[in-house]
């Protein structure tokens, strides 16, 4: 039994007056990969944003390494890397500069940046402004942040957007490697993603969605 990293208990989430879901509980252990499944509007993105503390929890608790938030917030954020819809890279900077910035922001050494850039297949573009890169290449730069940050928990929203077949295989490989090394990941995608040697547990948000209006509240 591997170590439990993240525990979610009785979480409910609202957008405005609308209840997305209520009473969601799950836990995530080291080496576990979770895929959020659900229709459009079922709250996949909102859940990811709540998990990375961008959205406040209406009810429920989030516990990281047995330390409940908000007390453990800083320790949690230090081990978390979130990749949302936006690439979060500066188009006027090169991939190298972008990654160097994120390395010093998360206080990790920058010497392995070049290795990471090679790994995601951008060796030839490392000193070009990101403005000149294609959407898929920018996405690769953005995903490189995961490797640079040395985060334990990856939260990935629509991680395959703009990636070609090679890119998708690359991402699958990165997640498998991360899980094998004891990391954990939660992701959403609308495209099929097969991971070699790693089990992907689905978390179906449709199943826990509040159907009637009894859950609506202020």
């Amino acid at each position: 039994m591997s170590e439990t990293l993240l525990e979610i208990d009785d979480l409910s989430l609202f957008r405005g007056q609308r209840c997305l879901f209520a009473g969601l509980s799950f836990s995530l252990s080291a080496g576990q990969v979770l895929q959020l499944v659900g229709d459009n509007g079922s709250g996949k993105t909102s859940l990811l944003r709540a998990l990375c503390t961008l959205l406040p929890l209406e009810t429920g608790t989030l516990t990281w390494r047995s330390e409940p938030l908000p007390q453990g917030r800083d320790n949690y954020l230090a081990e978390l890397c979130y990749a949302g819809h936006a690439d979060a890279i500066k188009l006027d900077l090169t991939p190298r500069e972008n990654l160097a910035f994120y390395a010093s922001l998360s206080n990790v050494p920058a010497h392995h940046i070049d290795t990471v850039i090679d790994k995601v297949g951008l060796a030839a573009q490392r000193d070009l402004p990101c403005r000149l890169l294609s959407a898929g290449q920018r996405r690769r730069v953005s995903l490189s942040r995961l490797l640079v940050s040395k985060a334990v928990l990856w939260l990935l929203d629509e991680l395959l957007t703009a990636l070609d077949a090679k890119g998708r295989a690359l991402v699958a490989g990165l997640i498998a490697e991360h899980a094998a090394a004891g990391g954990a990941a939660i992701f959403t995608t609308h495209q099929p993603l097969s991971l070699d040697g790693v089990r992907v547990d689905p978390l179906d948000l449709n199943a826990i969605q509040v159907q009637d209006d009894s859950g609506v509240h202020s």
């Binding site: 961008l54 800083d74 979130y82 949302g84 690439d87 979060a88 500066k90 922001l105 998360s106």
Partner: peptide, 14 residues
């Protein structure tokens, strides 16, 4: 804000 890097600043442990 537009390119998402503000989000990353907010989520920084710094």
């Amino acid at each position: 804000f537009d390119d998402g890097s503000l989000e990353q600043l907010v989520l920084s442990s710094q």
